[in-house]
């Protein structure tokens, strides 16, 4: 069965076609997947609203009086948030092998990156608020709703991570046989990261296209 024809035949045989896939996931995993799916849809609706209002508005966007968003801060924010998923992955791998120190240090690193992100966002807000607010016009409303709602999600994610860290520091919580919650929180954190990429594209990059 080494030739190509054999491979195709094997993959399209009755047995291969009846492979059970997906299989063996836990209830908690599925629960988190569904939760993330519904949250992702919520963000899709908000971003969709952004594009809808933008295209209904007319040629100048952002509306007169508001300049197109600067890119430096958001790019730095991206550079902080997106890599913050790596320590979580590393931590999760660690606890699967029962290495508690990896769990703890990985989570701590992610906490630092996440808090940095929020601090950067706060400084960006401080600057923007002098220019326009949520009540200036629909653009302002969209900007603060979408970024603020994402910021709230970062905060929720950080709460989860902090909670895991606290539970792990207390001891007796996680190990190679029990790491489900770590994985679920990690999934949520990756999701928050990905949403940020979509927001970066929508709010910061798309007005320049």
């Amino acid at each position: 069965m080494s030739d190509r024809g054999g491979v195709v035949a094997a993959a399209t045989g009755a047995e291969a076609l009846s492979t059970e896939l997906p299989v063996g996931r836990s209830a908690g995993w599925w629960g988190m997947v569904m939760f993330v799916a519904t949250e992702a849809t919520l963000f899709a609706c908000l971003l969709g609203s952004y594009f809808y209002l933008r295209f209904q508005y007319g040629p100048t966007w952002p509306p007169a009086g508001i300049e197109a968003p600067k890119l430096l801060t958001p790019l730095v924010m991206t550079a902080v948030l997106v890599p913050s998923s790596l320590p979580v992955v590393w931590a999760e791998r660690g606890i699967r092998q029962g290495q508690r120190w990896r769990l703890q240090s990985g989570l701590a690193a992610t906490m630092v990156l996440g808090v940095t992100f929020l601090a950067l966002q706060a400084s960006e807000y401080a600057e923007k608020l002098t220019q326009f607010t949520m009540t200036t016009d629909a653009y302002g409303s969209l900007f603060y709703l979408i970024t603020g709602f994402h910021g709230l999600h970062v905060m929720v994610g950080l709460t989860m991570i902090g909670w895991l860290l606290a539970a792990s520091l207390r001891g007796g919580s996680f190990g190679s046989h029990r790491h489900e919650r770590v994985r679920n929180a990690a999934m949520y954190w990756h999701f928050v990261d990905l949403v940020w990429v979509a927001i970066l594209f929508t709010i910061y990059l798309s007005p320049r296209l």
Partner: peptide, 18 residues
């Protein structure tokens, strides 16, 4: 096709089904 499909073929088959 008397041999059992290997893991690779199984993955492909499962994805093909979906």
């Amino acid at each position: 096709m008397t041999t059992r499909p290997g893991p690779h073929a199984r993955l492909t088959g499962g994805l093909l089904l979906w």
